[in-house]
Computed example of a mutant assay.
Amino acid sequence: MLIGEYGKFVYLTYFGSAMALLGIYFILQGQLVWGMSLFIISGLCDLFDGMVARSFKRTKAQEQFGIEIDSLCDMINFAAFPAVICMTQGKITWLAIVLAIMYVLAAVTRLAYFNRETKEERQGYFRGVPVTYAALIFPVGYLLSEWLVAGSFGIVVLLLTPCLAFFFVWDIKIPKPNKKMYIFFLLLAIVTLVALWSL
């Protein structure tokens, strides 16, 4: 007998984290196109896993377990993964390490705050930028930097990391995505993936 709740309602969340871990491996190997591509895929998994989970009939225990799994996987996908990108790609090593630590602490704070607020009340907006957005911001930043000045991502990542960390914990209202935004994010992800592989 195994502990936990198992079923199709968590498969996409697990798959997203598997892609993030594989992406980290590619980043560590210096294969940024593969790494960024898998980062985008992990972000898409997170974007749609809630929708997929709600399409299945679940017990209260399964629903609560899914919420916890999603948040824990977010720590791998959108806290640890970007920190690895920053530490391995940042041009100034000591600064990259400091910024990566700040980023992780901000992301974890954002996730903890979101979990508490979700349990207390349901709102039509997020407070602070969701950590999931990193899955598009870093790849797009890499893509644009390569287009403008090849090899400049090492500087760009040192700017992106603290900016995102700040926006995670800044008390600003961000509307939750509707169906049109889901389609927009999906199309942006596809365009970015195609552009990455055309570099």
Rank of each mutant, 00 (worst) to 15 (best):
L144K: 07
G90E: 00
I101G: 02
N115I: 13
Y113A: 12
P130E: 10
P130Q: 12
Y133T: 04
K179I: 10
I183Q: 15
V104Q: 04
K91C: 10
L160Q: 03
V129H: 01
N115V: 11
I97Q: 00
V84M: 04
I97Y: 04
W170T: 10
S152C: 08
G90M: 05
R110E: 03
I97T: 01
I101R: 04
V131E: 03
C86I: 08
Y133N: 04
V108M: 10
V140D: 01
R122C: 13
L95D: 04
P175E: 15
A165D: 02
V98P: 02
F153M: 10
Q89S: 11
L158Q: 06
V169C: 12
L144Y: 07
N178W: 15
I92C: 10
F184N: 15
W94L: 04
P130F: 09
C86G: 03
M181Y: 15
T161W: 01
F138M: 08
R110C: 04
A134H: 07
K119P: 12
L144M: 13
V84Q: 02
Y142R: 01
T88I: 06
G141M: 06
L105F: 12
V157H: 03
K173Q: 14
T132Y: 10
A100L: 02
W147F: 15
L160V: 02
A165Q: 00
G151N: 09
A106D: 03
F185D: 13
I85F: 03
V156N: 01
S152G: 09
V156F: 00
W170H: 09
N178P: 08
P139M: 09
P175V: 10
M102K: 11
A165H: 00
A135S: 15
Y182T: 14
V129N: 02
A134E: 07
L144G: 05
F138Y: 13
A135N: 09
T88R: 05
F184C: 15
D171A: 11
W170G: 05
M181D: 14
W170Y: 11
L105W: 07
G151K: 01
Y182G: 13
R110F: 04
E146H: 14
P175Y: 12
Y133A: 01
A107L: 00
A96W: 02
E117K: 09
I137D: 02
A106F: 05
G90I: 02
Y113C: 09
W147S: 08
L95F: 03
V149L: 13
I101T: 02
A112Y: 14
D171Y: 13
P162N: 01
M87S: 06
V131A: 03
V156D: 00
V131M: 07
S145K: 08
I172C: 13
F114P: 03
L187P: 04
A106M: 11
M181F: 14
G90N: 06
R122F: 12
